[in-house]
Design a protein around this nucleic acid. Structure first.
Lengths: 260, 260
DNA sequence: CAAATTCTTTCATAAACTTGCAAAAATAAA
DNA sequence: TTTATTTTTGCAAGTTTATGAAAGAATTTG
């Protein structure tokens, strides 16, 4: 049992953990949870909403039920990787369908692309180029040919970014490049770090096909730095949350899309 | 639990270490941390900001949570059990003495050099260039500037090797380069993989000082590919098992040596 | 269909965060 | 040593975010 002996106010992640624990395998009402956590029902509702977004539980009228996938004890605290985990999983699965044995592909940073990396053991003789240390770690023992872009290490995303990636990037020929992003709008993709944007654009210019993996939560969001126009991409893989309006925009730019 | 018996003021890195320790696997509020460390909340916020930048934790409103350590390090870290661990440890310690704050250094692959990488937290503001994924994983959260050589991944040594390392290698200026090796004789160092030899020679040509870390077991052994002459190195760090005869050869080639 | 409950939205307030600035400490220079 | 310069720290003003309450919309239930 997670206890909070000292009765200081709980932080959001703690509350979320307690909610999930309280749910166990069953059902809890809003008022029960509010009483247990000593917060208002409004706050419980807000927490439940984000947890549902994350795929950790399912809301029902009056409360919530747990969708226990067996081994989900850990994900409480590192939300970044598990945000919208279900959508990302499905998106990665759909992207996998675009890859054939013998392909030479590029993997960008980001958790959605990382989910794709985990699935690559079902293909053979790939040449995988990447700037993501997480993806590289995943593929170390895969048997595929693995090439890392060199460059400056960016701790937050665990990727190699910036101008130093360009000499090696320019030496490579890439068939299909799979990108993640922070924000996606009609004017293109954007990301937080200039170095990251630089490297994205570099690879965008060298790949025969550029495929963007982005859950619908990314659509409509913008970040600091522009990292490529919509026209630069040949395909977007997203989930069913994408608005029809945005899909219309994609058509206008001749970007195919796959709803996973 | 945290304690810092003597009540002198803590230095920033000490505070950061204590914050990480306090977080353990859980979550702490700003005010808790401020009370524990006896500094203002503003300072805690600043520390948390840099630690988040460094990827060591994640901030939430009101405090911070630890980004689970176990999962991120494990995959990169499965290391073959090191032979002659004691010697390697001492050699690494001696090599550490050659590094000063602000230096720009290169770390090659191999377990001895990896041992050196683990000690680098006692230095500040280093620029570390490496072709070793093990070393990179070790230094991810160190706060040092980290640059990876790009290139083809060699699973056995977990390093990046071959011709693709040359464009980026040629763009860098390196002060002190630390190398490992398989074999070391009067005619120079040798290694098993041609790609690895290529990259060693590349960096050898670009570093102001080349320092070889090799336990005495390596002396007298040869491997497949030549990877540099004795004259290319300015210093060898080894253990007391090195034969006087070989030390005489070193002197003739004007290679300094340190017996750790 | 109506009553009751639950949900969403909006808003006010309190807590937490960011930024800029000045004092204090540490470091370098004289 | 003293003095100057840089860095770090704490404080305060303004901004943002989270929370709980309240009113209207939606859903369930009899």
């Amino acid at each position: 049992m997670i206890s909070h002996g000292n009765n200081r106010k709980l932080l959001t992640p703690e509350r979320e953990a307690l909610i999930l624990e309280a749910l166990g395998n069953g059902v809890r009402t809003i008022s029960e949870l509010a009483a247990t956590l000593q917060v208002s029902e409004a706050t419980v509702r807000r927490d439940l909403r984000t947890l549902e977004q994350r795929g950790a539980l399912q809301r029902v009228h009056g409360g919530a039920v747990r969708v226990d996938d067996g081994e989900k004890r850990e994900p409480l605290f590192h939300e970044k990787t598990t945000l919208r985990a279900d959508e990302k999983e499905r998106i990665a699965e759909a992207a996998l369908g675009l890859i054939e044995d013998g392909d030479s592909i590029y993997l960008d940073g980001g958790s959605t692309v990382l989910a794709l990396a985990r699935k690559l053991s079902s293909r053979h003789e790939l040449t995988v180029v990447t700037n993501s240390l997480m993806a590289a770690a995943e593929l170390m023992e895969s048997g595929h040919k693995l090439i890392l872009l060199g460059g400056e290490f960016r701790p937050l995303s665990r990727t190699l970014v910036g101008p130093l990636t360009s000499p090696i990037g320019e030496a490579l020929h890439i068939g299909k490049a799979f990108f993640g992003t922070i924000g996606l709008t009609a004017s293109g993709v954007s990301t937080t770090d200039p170095g990251e944007a630089f490297t994205k654009k570099l690879i965008l210019g060298r790949a025969e096909q550029a495929i963007l993996l982005a859950d619908s939560g990314k659509i409509g969001r913008t970040s600091l730095v522009d990292a490529g126009k919509l026209d630069d991409f040949s395909c977007l893989v997203t989930d069913s949350g994408a608005s029809p309006d945005f899909l219309k925009i994609l058509k206008k730019h001749r970007v195919e899309f796959i709803i996973a």
